[in-house]
Write a protein that binds this DNA or RNA. Sequence first.
DNA 1: AAGATTATGGCAGCAACTGACACTTGGCAA
DNA 2: TTGCCAAGTGTCAGTTGCTGCCATAATCTT
Lengths: 227, 227
Amino acid sequence: MTHDREQTGLRERKKARTRQALVAAALRLFAERGFDAVTTEEIAAEADVSQRTLFRYFASKEEIVLSVHDQIEEGFRLKLAARPAEEHPFTAMVNAFADAWSELEPADVAAQLQVLRISNDSSRLHGARQERVCSHQNRLALLIARRAGVDPRLDPRPELLTAAFTSALQVAFGRSCRAAGQDNLLEAVDECLALLPTALTADWDTANTPAHTSTPDADGQILPVGG
Amino acid sequence: MTHDREQTGLRERKKARTRQALVAAALRLFAERGFDAVTTEEIAAEADVSQRTLFRYFASKEEIVLSVHDQIEEGFRLKLAARPAEEHPFTAMVNAFADAWSELEPADVAAQLQVLRISNDSSRLHGARQERVCSHQNRLALLIARRAGVDPRLDPRPELLTAAFTSALQVAFGRSCRAAGQDNLLEAVDECLALLPTALTADWDTANTPAHTSTPDADGQILPVGG
DNA sequence: AAGATTATGGCAGCAACTGACACTTGGCAA
DNA sequence: TTGCCAAGTGTCAGTTGCTGCCATAATCTT
């Protein structure tokens, strides 16, 4: 990712630059006016290419945004595959998530957050993103099944675990976007992943509410999850 | 639902009939040729209305299919609100699901299954459905929060619980559709909902695999969920 | 430098929608 | 019953996402 200048030819460099320009233009315009209020022709004009070229780089308007989202999902799967096999599947996913985000550069982090914000703007885009998350989750399930040595077609638990994990992440993303603060995403994720197992099992409608529920302005981490 | 003939006027009856004809035509055509291969004009022609009229009844092509899906989600929320307050939130949702499906007529059950099958056919439709599921899950979270007496903006557990529950349902739906048999949906749901809590917590990568994992052709219910 | 490969642009066209307008139909009261 | 008003419908034009086709221009190879 650092110096592939001499490896690739001019053609590939140009393509990468065009693609990058399209993504940058799209994200900026979407953030300014919202996903639905920006046409593909405007994005293409902003990146100094024709609309036809835009659709040669991205299969759809949503794809431009989702391509950014794909980066971190792919990184997450790579990190998961690299986690030691002794770890519990859930722990491995929690740590893989932290690994993937920790190696992002600040600009990439900002792009990811912007994608989350933009996704909440349009129901069309949100649906497309959900579908991506779904197929990502399916690939996660295969990784988990292989790691645990079970047949994913007989045992539903890999799918169930990854589905619960992924949806907890979505909850954290949603809450983080809804909150006024901007850089609380990691904390929201930590909190949600820590609460997920107990939310299912414990009798939380009676007494043992989590500590911060009664003290909403606690700013410390609820439970450290990183490795 | 049985005899509202004398309550409503001719105008409303006509509207209901048109709407029903559109849904029936769409489902049939989609099942025959796939969601993407059917145009809205064809659906309109099949229901003897103009394309413009179709879009006065449904906001989008996906909406025609999703309107069927909405019925059961709405029924589910009604049943959940009717469950006794003493039940654990998770148990209440499991029972509400069974309640909602048990009161469906056979034709409605068939329609729901067809919707699931059609949804897997098109990525666009699948994304739209996921988005519906998402907003449904948000409303579920509000119901659960009220039932448990917690503030959903401070306590993420209602969202987490409903997200995990909903995604477990999706897993069950997907597995049921992928399976060769046709009427195993309820069993798949029972199995997934029963396995969900343990999939998160227990060390299932070592020993305690569920009973039917080694005996895939067990046909009994894994765990009764009804009330 | 010439030829092969590949990226790009322009254009026509399809399908999902939408707004505007005219027309028909059902509901309701004089 | 008659007549008026509201509501449903069809037609048409137009926008937008997206694709196939072909000509052109840029890059790579030899």
